[in-house]
């Protein structure tokens, strides 16, 4: 599940409305990085079509810094938002810079780059992403940290979104379907379902809707929406989670899924959740 939705809606309400020209100006200057951070987010959120937008975001991505363990690196926060925005804007011109960012030492940046490459359906990214996932201990936690060595969830989801169906891609993802962390299992089931259309992965996601942790149920909801598997309609309706997330999942069933159940049945379930 993309973890940026909360941040996005928080910023949508916290940030003051600005014009596209103002956003571009804020990204161009370099004295105030919080201005750049907000501008990069804004341009993605508003789907800016200005000819300068993508080049400026690429430049922001290139200003990322080697990450010192002790200090927070502001440039990288701007670069993360730039990567996210480039994913939203859908311009393939950004792919080479995102591929380079996928090799960065900063795992937060690798995560943002992987998600953006998934959104751009960048087939060039499949082999470097697979290499990362197949690397030694990719799914093991970093010492003294909750983070894994690789941002596995984002990498796996990107493979599913890109949708390049190949046996070696499936082989790389499959071990994560039994990872000890349920969020990783959810991402793996989502991607494997997208790539193989094998219903067993849909059933795995439905099982996760009954997980005791709300965060896991939320993630399974988003993943079922992403695959659009309509037989999940009733489990989605009945799981204990916010209606907002159920509605997003059911929207995915309507827009991406196939009958049965028919579209009107899914819409009726959505009406009941409003």
């Amino acid at each position: 599940m993309a973890g940026t939705a909360d941040l996005d809606s928080a910023m949508a309400t916290a940030g003051e409305p600005i014009s596209e020209e103002e956003a571009l100006q804020r990204l161009r200057q370099s004295e105030d990085q919080s201005h750049q951070y907000y501008a990069a987010w804004w341009l993605g959120r508003m789907r800016s079509r200005h000819p300068e937008t993508v080049p400026l975001l690429q430049a922001a991505l290139r200003r990322r810094q080697p990450r010192a363990v002790s200090s927070g690196v502001e440039e990288n926060a701007v670069a993360r938002n730039a990567a996210r925005a480039l994913g939203k804007l859908g311009d393939p011109q950004a792919i080479p810079d995102l591929l380079a960012t996928l090799e960065d030492e900063d795992d937060g940046l690798r995560e943002a780059a992987a998600r953006a490459l998934g959104e751009l359906r960048a087939r060039e990214a499949v082999s470097p992403i697979c290499a990362r996932l197949a690397s030694d201990q990719a799914g093991q936690p970093l010492p003294n940290s909750l983070r894994l060595r690789e941002p596995c969830e984002a990498l796996i989801e990107a493979l599913g979104d890109i949708g390049l169906v190949a046996p070696d891609v499936v082989d790389v993802i499959q071990p994560f379907a039994i990872h000890e962390r349920p969020l990783i299992r959810s991402a793996a089931a989502r991607a494997l379902f997208q790539l193989t259309q094998d219903r067993r992965w849909g059933h795995n996601l439905i099982e996760l809707l009954e997980h005791p942790q709300l965060q896991v149920r939320r993630s399974a909801l988003m993943d079922l929406g992403a695959v659009g598997w309509r037989p999940a309609l009733e489990p989605i309706r009945d799981t204990l989670a916010e209606n907002s997330l159920k509605l997003i999942a059911l929207r995915g069933l309507v827009e991406r899924g196939q009958a049965p159940p028919d579209t009107e049945t899914v819409l009726r379930a959505m009406d009941d959740l409003l």
């Binding site: 929207r251 309507v254 009107e264 959505m270």
Partner: peptide, 10 residues
Amino acid sequence: TPVVRLRAGL
């Protein structure tokens, strides 16, 4: 948004 169009059509 496609789902909004579909719902309005319904």
